[in-house]
Design a protein around this nucleic acid. Structure first.
Lengths: 362, 362
DNA sequence: TGATCATGCAGAAACGTGACTGTCAACGCG
DNA sequence: CGCGTTGACAGTCACGTTTCTGCATGATCA
């Protein structure tokens, strides 16, 4: 029965199927499949011949059919808990962008592609895409999507240790407690007497762990906690909270801001109150943005190394997908990096400013 | 033949198939399919019953099987031309992030999801995912991936008008020429006598159109062009080029920077040379970043409205996918927005924004 | 020389769904 | 009462792969 060539006339004229290749090469579809996938036992001559014919016909195997047959789609879901309507979160934006970039790159290197999906539980979208696994960034306590995916037997790896009893397959995170303690010690070493904190009102683990570490440090060294909390998803609220923190009667002489925009917010607030940085106020914030290298003055930042996290998350997830999870632990901790700049050093290395060369005094 | 329940024992125990639902509901799989998809003619009682049983079993239709059958996957590829190894480009990063966010949101609203794919022509990844269409951001002259996709009959919509004879289905872009002319007029209105340009050495259409518009404007008003070009993908090269521009003997008294980081670069360079902004130097740059609202001084920026572009690209693409392209043009121009701040106003307290163009100029 | 075995390939069964076709009863109508 | 019509479903094929099974053919060996 030669229905291959004839009955396919109704399909896309530009797309050739495996049967067309088989007919053109004078072999069976089994041979074509084996030749192209490197399976079976075929002489090199046949293999080369089939590949040549396939190339000539512009044959591309149907991803849908392959997925249906093999059960593997090569797709990995990427989702971020969102605080608003947008699919991405606002606050950790530079972090997420870097992390997503590294994750995309790492996945691509192993033959997988990333699908951006909403954290909301929209069944119609989630169930319409065949996933091999999912990356969840900063999952909330009882994320219904995560539970559903795990229930379906899909591996789920989270960026950020899961809160509560979220049944993720594995997670990758920083040691936020150690990072905060390191910063506070760094500020104290630079001469800070009263260190304030700009934190969030959200209940995610990052905010929680960092704030707890701050409070414990304060207790240890005998300092009264000085902090302001604000809803981290509101960009304006950060500026207001920074202003409030510096307007307090017990004004801190050093501040650590947990979120990316806090550096500029605090800098602007300091200017308003006539505080010089770092002479009157030491500043550190957690950020991946490069703008803090060229602010006036440059601001010391804590990098959570999103590139490394994104890469690690993907490696762990794909290992789980391919059944290579072996004996390594399913919990991975990535070290943070403190990028020390002028804003946290009481004695800044006076940079010599080159004199302005004015060619024609204006 | 009741092989449905028995032969499926080898599959995932957590996943029920349509046959399981049919058996549990006491109907045929046709009825299940019709009931869940709203097709056929079924009494509401049967429809509700089937849906209830499906929910109870946690039935989720196989996306792969549905894709194979219907030919639609609900997936849209998103790719960006890359200048390095990373899948995303560096320079237009804030732009791309905003655009991708809006595109994701718009796609989700219509039941589609976005797949991040590399611009490189890696067949093994591209052909492993079943796409309904693709968004290409700033495609290069003769992108082989685009040609291949179009050849397969897939709709391709580009962000940025295609260079050369790239056979895209449709495109969405700003009017870059008008934007540049508007900025130059704006700077001239503010008192600029010699306006410089910080541009790129790349050959993409954005850089090309903008630079050409600048040169034409210079010719029209009789000013010698003063510009520096640098490879836009190198973050350090921007700072060097900004420095070089302000070190020239024919130093401009106003500069427009085509790329996102140019604002901070130029500001830093101006500080090095003791130039006050805006008194000695007027500054505008093209950026989507919010940091320019709180720099010292705040910098006037041109926004390309990536949110609107991302949304428009997705709408056009999905219309093409679903065959709704109707009679509207396949080329859509999104207006830019000039966000005027202190850096481009010689008299800061002036709040009223001067009208953009004066047709009776030189 | 017949049994064993590796080689090179073909046939056909799935994968899970959507859609087309067919069947059977009930019903209205002349 | 016979007949066309319609509602409510069931059976079955096809989507395009991968893969299991199996059949020839020639080589090797006891």
């Amino acid at each position: 029965m030669s229905r291959a060539e004839t009955s396919r006339r109704g399909s896309r004229p530009g797309r050739a199927g495996i049967r067309d290749v088989a007919a053109a090469a004078g072999v069976s579809i089994t041979t074509v499949s084996d030749a192209l996938n490197g399976k079976g036992r075929l002489p090199d001559a046949t293999r080369r011949h089939v590949r040549e014919v396939a190339d000539r016909l512009g044959y591309r195997p149907s991803a849908a059919a392959r997925t249906l047959r093999t059960g593997k789609s090569g797709l990995i879901g990427l989702t971020v808990t969102t605080y608003g309507d947008e699919p991405f979160t606002f606050t950790e934006f530079a972090y997420f962008a870097e992390m997503a970039r590294a994750a995309t790159s790492a996945a691509l290197a192993r033959g997988y592609a990333l699908v951006i999906l909403p954290a909301t539980s929209r069944h119609d979208v989630w169930s319409n895409v065949a996933l091999d696994g999912t990356v969840v960034v900063d999952p909330s306590d009882h994320d219904p999507v995560v539970s559903e995916l795990v229930r379906q037997g899909l591996p789920v790896v989270s960026d950020g240790r899961p809160a509560g009893s979220l049944p993720v397959t594995a997670w990758v995170d920083n040691d936020h407690e150690a990072a905060v303690l390191g910063i506070l010690d760094h500020l104290a070493d630079a001469g800070a007497r009263r260190i304030g904190l700009l934190t969030g009102t959200t209940t995610d683990t990052y905010t929680h762990l960092s704030t707890t570490a701050y409070l414990r440090w304060c207790e240890r060294v005998g300092q009264d906690p000085v902090y302001e909390a604000y809803p981290a998803h509101d960009p304006c609220a950060g500026a207001v909270a920074a202003d409030r923190l510096l307007a307090r009667p017990d004004r801190p002489d050093a501040v650590y801001g947990l979120f990316d925009p806090n550096g500029t917010d605090l800098l602007a607030a300091a200017r308003r109150y006539g505080l010089r940085v770092p002479e009157d106020l030491l500043l550190v914030c957690c950020s991946e943005s490069t703008v803090y290298a060229s602010t006036e003055p440059p601001i010391t930042t804590l990098s959570l190394k999103p590139r490394r996290i994104g890469t690690a998350v993907i490696q762990v997830l794909i290992d789980a997908i391919e059944g290579l999870h072996s004996d390594q632990p399913v919990e991975q901790v990535i070290p943070t990096e403190l990028i020390v700049r002028t804003s946290s050093q009481r004695r800044p290395p006076r940079t010599t400013v080159s004199p302005p060369r004015s060619p024609e005094g204006e």
